[in-house]
């Protein structure tokens, strides 16, 4: 099973979290995990919209280890210092909490960020099937 969602306007953030929830539900995740994955998606999709303008969400049903993978990629400005961006409270948006990335990490089992300044960002999250 595989699926993609394009992010290019604010409505797509809503669409992405709906698609992701349905995907997770279809795979057999419980309601709490569905909500966690959908919320993580919302945070990462909003980052794409906010910082890169547009990008792509790809969903995969991984068999071994059994779980769900979501890949968020964009060709935006990239992240200068990834470990700094992962810190709670770090933000380049005025009035934001800088909670998106560190919060998302707590909602999933694995999270990896690959980013090249000037080229783009790729965030990969994985939720294990319990």
């Amino acid at each position: 099973m595989m699926q993609t969602v394009t992010i290019q306007d604010e409505g797509d953030i809503v669409e992405a979290r709906r698609v992701v929830r349905d995907f997770a539900k279809e795979m057999g995740f419980g309601i709490v995990d569905q909500t966690k994955i959908a919320t993580a998606t919302s945070e990462l999709a909003r980052n794409i919209f906010r910082y890169a303008g547009k990008g792509l969400v790809e969903l995969q049903d991984v068999l071994s280890p059994h779980g769900m993978r979501a890949i968020f990629s964009d060709e935006g400005p990239g992240i200068e210092n990834v470990s700094l961006a992962m810190q709670e409270g770090f933000t380049t948006t005025q009035g934001s909490l800088g909670l998106g990335l560190p919060g998302t990490q707590r909602l999933v089992d694995e999270m990896k960020i690959e980013s090249t300044p000037g080229k783009g960002t790729k965030v990969i999250i994985f939720k294990k099937m319990p």
């Binding site: 909500t35 966690k36 919320t39 709670e88 909490l97 909670l99 560190p102 919060g103 707590r106 909602l107």
Partner: peptide, 9 residues
């Protein structure tokens, strides 16, 4: 509720 707590808000 569980997700919000985990998110840290």
């Amino acid at each position: 509720a569980i997700t919000l707590i985990e998110l840290g808000l």
